[in-house]
């Protein structure tokens, strides 16, 4: 169990991070420059927080009131850097051996070679990092860290340096290696939502140095609590509400039915993902409205339609390319399914 409660004043913002993470992968998500990497650096001992404490499996790593601030080299934390940070003048073998201490040469050799096998780099022992592909470099970086058997593993944007077409493949590879060889706590920093959803069990949402929401990934992605959370996970339609009851709300003259829910006074907006807006030929379903299309942006698989209801609410709807013609030709209604409406608090 990792318990973090730290604050640090930085040039552009103040970092305030308080969270817990247990075994499994916890994703730290947020826009660039929101303090994600700084958090990892504080955990690993490369930066010192101004206040707070860090406990790892009951052991304090940073606890100023007891004058504890372990150096990076004594924290037993694995850190896989965004650019992998492989030592260019050392071979694959030497890189992986670098973090092993207090062992006999034979033991080291044995550990290194079994780790090389696990990450499928047999035959590359004598290669230098510059001779490897991006994916191979990533595996060396991971092996170099895993061989030290860290108590906590930090992955900083592990896929951002890779080409798009190999990303998926490497993601699966990395997950397989992690599952088979590591049982501790993993923190993964990313700004890619899809990646976060695929890889993580728990999610922590960051914005401008503050944690805005934390929890199970399903919870975060299906029920973001506030406007900022919704924006970060990619909700394009966020509209202020005029009034709201347990079953419906008023939005700029439009009445929207809601799934029955508890209403607090902090609720200020509703949101809906562009993929969740549907189009029907009849207006029998709940929340069906006539509309006009004001803009069309065609993508590879999906088309973004900017639609306007009679009451002048503008929404963005993503639909598969195949049905765009249908929507344009036939008289249709846009449908906002109540179960997909997000009820959002202001921050």
């Amino acid at each position: 169990m990792l318990t973090v409660d730290i604050s640090k004043t930085l040039k552009h913002f103040k970092l305030n991070a308080s969270f817990e993470a247990s075994k499994g992968i916890t994703g730290i998500i947020g826009p660039s420059g929101c303090g994600k990497s700084v958090t990892l650096q504080c955990l690993s001992g490369l930066l010192t927080p101004d206040h707070g404490k860090i406990l790892l499996n009951g052991k304090p790593l940073f606890q100023p009131d007891q004058r504890i601030n372990l150096k990076a080299k004594d924290r037993k934390i694995g850190y896989v850097f965004q650019n992998y940070a492989l030592f260019p003048h050392m071979t694959v073998e030497q890189n992986i051996e670098f973090g092993l201490k207090g062992l006999l040469t034979a033991e080291k050799k044995q550990k290194v070679s079994s780790m090389i096998e696990k990450v499928q780099l047999s035959g590359y022992e004598k290669h230098y990092p510059a001779q490897l592909s991006g994916g191979q470099q990533q595996r060396v970086a991971l092996a170099r860290t895993l061989v030290t058997e860290p108590d906590l593993l930090l992955l900083d944007e592990p896929f951002s340096a890779l080409d798009h077409h190999v990303k998926h493949l490497l993601e699966q590879e990395l997950m397989k290696i992690l599952k088979e060889n590591y049982e501790g706590i993993v923190l993964l920093v990313t700004h890619n939502m899809e990646e976060a959803y695929r890889l993580c069990d728990q999610i922590i949402l960051y914005d401008q140095g503050q944690i805005i929401q934390a929890g199970r990934k399903e919870e975060i992605f299906e029920k973001p609590k506030n406007i900022t959370s919704a924006k970060i996970i990619g909700c394009q339609n966020i509209i202020p509400v005029d009034s709201i009851t347990e079953t419906q709300c008023q939005v700029q003259g439009l009445t929207l039915k809601l799934e029955k829910q508890h209403v607090t006074e902090n609720i200020s907006h509703i949101g809906i993902f562009s993929e969740n807006i549907h189009f029907n030929e009849d207006n029998q379903s709940l929340n069906a409205f006539p509309f006009k299309i004001t803009d069309i942006v065609k993508g590879i698989h999906q088309t973004n339609l900017t639609v306007k209801t009679a009451d002048a609410i503008t929404l963005i709807a993503s639909v598969p390319n195949e049905i765009v013609d249908q929507i344009l030709k036939k008289k249709m209604y846009l449908v906002i399914p109540p179960q997909h409406l997000l009820i959002l608090e202001k921050r």
């Binding site: 690993s44 490369l46 150096k71 990076a72 080299k73 004594d74 650019n83 670098f98 170099r144 860290t145």
Partner: peptide, 27 residues
């Protein structure tokens, strides 16, 4: 020298003097 190399060496448990001799000087 890329600072992340020095940070990687620190996290991997090496002392500053050791890092100077094994990373900084060779690079």
């Amino acid at each position: 020298i890329d600072p992340s190399l020095l940070n990687a060496a620190r996290v991997l448990g090496r002392s500053e003097l050791n890092i100077f001799l094994t990373i900084t000087i060779p690079l």
